[in-house]
Design a protein around this nucleic acid. Structure first.
Length: 491
RNA sequence: CGGGAUGUGGCUCAGCCUGGUAGAGUACUCGUCUGGGGGGCGAGGGGUCGCGGGUUCAAAUCCCGCCAUCCCGACCA
């Protein structure tokens, strides 16, 4: 671990990459575009998973698992869907290798060509709807509320750790309903689960909205999303929830008999968040000293670093520290006692700071004598000396404060980087000099949206839900508009 | 797939132009002094110089070919 950190100011993307690598979250792998998620990074993902999974269960969903492979013919059953994903699919064509005749290595056995090629899922709508056809006959089978935790592959040209990798981990919910209304309600319900998770657990303020036709999921009627603003002024889509209408039901012929005896196609939704959330989490709170984690998602919330010289002091300090650890654990706080004898305290301070541990407690012989400890918080880097007797209460409170402070800070940053543009000049100037979210009028056409993207690289992130109606003129075309939409350059 | 760059101990890189015993920092191992913010000193281990071919008495260095990776574009949760 090097001592000099690149700052956000100097080089934002290197700053990000450095944190991922040096905080030991993930690394690039021998496979192009794919990453190895390291234990510390995976521990954060597990916390994300655990919490979301609980929230899914609470809203009536159950988990299942569908195959990694999708028959090629399935993918093409829904026209828009194949259109959207065709360009980034990995394809399995053979099922066997054999020893190369020239001696070394193995080659693909040309004899072992698959009759029908298999696609490695870029998403699972097709295999799932093919399966649902067998599960659904009557309104009594509905709603069907299933989620799966899985990996998917999208053959991206350029990848970045967590933000865009060829293979990534995610969850995908796939639900079937008897009515359009119910499916839309489900779509929005899950959008709300995502935004609640983002704000409450990741301490990441998000804007809920609906995507324009251009940005819609391939095969959806409507795509809803949560959008967050990163520290470099770029937007990041953190989660999506799709109302699929009857598109997939029609493509896979999934019908049900209603109470009235009539046959109809079912209504569908799908929704997902991925390991991209890790990228969002890293960029949202971290500073030039490294990762900053919200207490609710930190693998451990508190680290205790003992300071000692010789075995005698070690025993003294350890006993004291273990007592503290026990008390804190009783309060439901996760605490790591870093008693590695192979590293010095200063090294440990720096390491835990870089890895974003929310609270550090240093315990030395002086503390044992005075019944105190030194407490340092990661978000503000403030240190204070506290009486041991108060510790469980104070640390518990401190963790809440940190969680809240991170959210407040992020929200304030977003507000400061959110502007309105009323003219094309203003729009371009804001993008180039300030970045961030820009509320501007748009004439509602795809042509204008594409033109703006071509000229400025900014896209419409979403049309915010509950957007206030306000008539105005499109920032690009000058045509009438009924509301402002949210623009930004995005990841 | 276009444009640019780079491949040398685990990592970051120097050496290449001008061919002649493969180096530094860091990391690692051992010893020792240390320990309240990334320690000091001493010793030690570790590299077919991306791969293949060519030129030469001699190639990390010159020539040809290939491969890989990174950055910038087109595509994207």
């Amino acid at each position: 671990m090097s001592k000099e950190n690149v700052t956000r100011e100097e080089n934002y993307s290197q700053w990000y990459n450095d944190i991922v690598i040096k905080a030991d979250l993930a690394e690039t792998s021998a496979v192009r575009g794919c990453m190895v998620i390291k234990p510390y990074g995976y521990a954060i993902w597990e916390k994300i998973q655990r919490q979301l999974d609980d929230m899914f269960k609470e809203t009536g969903h159950v988990n299942a698992y569908f195959p990694l492979f999708i028959p090629k013919s399935f993918l093409s059953k829904e026209a828009a869907h194949i259109e959207g994903f065709a360009k980034e699919c990995a394809v399995v064509t053979h099922y066997r290798l054999k020893t190369d005749e020239s001696g070394k290595g193995v080659i693909v056995d040309p004899e072992a060509k698959l009759e029908e090629e298999l696609i490695i899922r870029p998403t699972s709508e097709t295999i799932i709807w093919n399966t649902y056809k067998g599960w659904i006959q009557s309104y009594r089978d509905l709603p069907l509320l299933v989620n799966q935790w899985a990996n998917v592959v999208r053959w991206e040209m350029r990848t970045r750790l967590f933000l865009r990798t060829a293979e990534f981990l995610w969850q995908e919910g796939h639900t079937a309903h008897a009515t359009s209304e119910e499916a839309i309600e489900e779509t929005l319900k899950m959008l709300n689960v995502y935004s609640e998770f983002a704000e409450e657990y990741m301490a990441m303020p998000v804007i809920k909205g609906v995507k324009t036709a251009n940005e819609r999921f391939a095969g959806a009627v409507d795509t809803y999303c949560i959008e967050a603003l990163m520290q470099d002024g770029k937007a990041l889509q953190a989660g999506t929830s799709h109302f699929l209408g009857q598109n997939f039901a029609k493509a896979f012929d999934v019908k049900f008999t209603g109470k009235d005896g009539k046959l109809d196609y079912v209504w569908a939704t799908s929704w997902g968040v991925s390991t991209r959330l890790m990228g969002a989490l890293i960029m949202m709170h971290s500073d030039d000293k490294g990762l900053v984690l919200p207490p609710k998602l930190a693998p451990f919330q508190v680290v205790i670093v003992p300071i000692y010289r010789g075995d005698e002091e070690l025993n003294l300090v350890s006993e004291f520290s273990l007592k503290i650890q026990k008390e804190l654990k009783r309060k439901g706080i996760s605490v790591k006692f870093d008693n590695r004898d192979t590293y010095k305290p200063g090294y440990k301070f720096a390491e835990h700071e870089y890895r974003g541990v929310p609270v550090r407690i240093a315990v030395g012989p002086r503390d044992v004598a005075n019944s105190t400890v030194e407490v340092a918080r990661r978000d503000t880097l403030e240190k204070e000396v506290l009486q041991v007797i108060d510790l469980p209460e104070k640390i518990s409170h401190l963790l809440e404060q940190i969680q809240k402070n991170l959210y407040d800070r992020a929200l304030e940053r977003r507000e400061q980087n959110t502007n309105q543009a009323d003219s094309w000049e203003e729009f371009c100037e804001l993008l180039d000099n300030k970045g961030g979210f820009i509320y501007a009028h748009w004439d509602g056409t795809s042509e204008t949206e594409e033109k703006i993207k071509e000229l400025t690289k900014a896209t419409i992130r979403c049309i915010p839900l509950n957007n206030k109606k306000e008539s105005g003129l499109c920032v690009y075309s000058g045509k009438p508009s009924a509301e402002r939409v949210l623009f930004a350059r995005a990841y």
